[in-house]
Design a protein around this nucleic acid. Structure first.
Lengths: 174, 174
DNA sequence: TTATTAGTTCAGTAATTTTTGAAAGATTAA
DNA sequence: TTAATCTTTCAAAAATTACTGAACTAATAA
């Protein structure tokens, strides 16, 4: 066994976990949740809560909560091994599924509510001649239009097959 | 003057500012910075630091820092009125510009570094036959592919004209 | 039944992020 | 030069968010 090469892989794993955690936190996702996800993404086998606690140096409560949240995001699932009492966790490794799952959840939690609000705000009544009113309405209308375009694109993406999606995109954008 | 209608507009403004702030914080952007941006987006005129402090009930230091950050994101700019010493702030109201500016900054700050790391990680050496190694490499490779597709799409978007961009998207996705 | 093992919850604590406010810096006017 | 006005900075405080660990619940085995 070549210790140097083994170290290379271990070092790579640590860097990946760290980077995924950082990226998550920059996008409003709890750093630890992203790290747990990263760990499971690069694990060949399903891991137990104990494994995760040990790898990431986190408490049982923390591990449990973040695992539950990841299940809620549809990114990992529980596995039960016959004859064993403890639960194993396994990440969906399909990158396109991950992207779609995240897009789907964020659309539901964030985009849909904002579109609802923008529609309400476009009904606001006021002095049609006033500059203040016009600027407000104009901004709301433009953002609404953008949000709806993003929404339509996401809906397409959610239904789409990965290779078809990118092929279609690059056909135009070559 | 109809007080009820004026109230309607004021209420709409408050809701917009609140929602924009919430959305920002869900995407890793300081809530106050997003609120300052929202306020300027719906203001008919450029505002001073004092105006912003008063509207949002924040301190001078806080206002100053967030205004500086917004300038750094390319979302607002300073204006000097002849004969006046104080600075006025004005938001770019063009929604497509805003989207591109945010995309550009986040690409630079987050996507580019992650692509750099993924390229490094795809060079990691190890036991080519080992399951652990294969899974790690596979995950890194897939994420790398996705990241590069997103990158290409963003680069196109950054150069694109709004109506052309959406028209192209919906031509495929009808 | 009791013991054992694992999962869940949550009040208290810790860590991180944001905000304040006062002091220092800049710029112009008198 | 001093005063007036406005901007910037940053250490300390406040607010928010995340984490711990122990008590509790649940499931199975002895």
């Amino acid at each position: 066994m070549n210790l140097y090469l083994v170290m290379e892989l271990e070092e790579g794993k640590l860097k990946f976990i760290e980077a995924w955690g950082k990226l998550g936190s920059e996008w409003g996702i709890n750093r630890t949740m992203a790290q747990v996800h990263a760990l499971l993404l690069i694990s060949a086998d399903a891991l137990t809560t104990e494994d995760i606690m040990a790898e990431l140096n986190i408490s049982r409560g923390n591990a449990n909560m973040n695992l539950r949240d990841l299940i809620g995001w549809g990114l990992i699932e529980k596995q039960h091994k016959p004859g064993e009492r403890k639960e194993y966790f396994l990440a969906d490794k399909d990158t396109w599924n991950i992207a779609r799952q995240v897009a789907k959840e964020r659309k539901k939690r964030e985009l849909d509510p904002i579109i609802k609000l923008l529609n309400e705000l476009s009904e606001v009544k006021g002095d049609e001649k006033g500059r203040e009113f016009k600027v407000f309405k104009g901004t709301v209308k433009d953002i609404n239009k953008l949000a709806k375009n993003v929404n339509k694109t996401l809906e397409t993406m959610l239904k789409a097959d990965e290779s078809w999606f990118w092929a279609s995109i690059f056909k135009i954008f070559k």
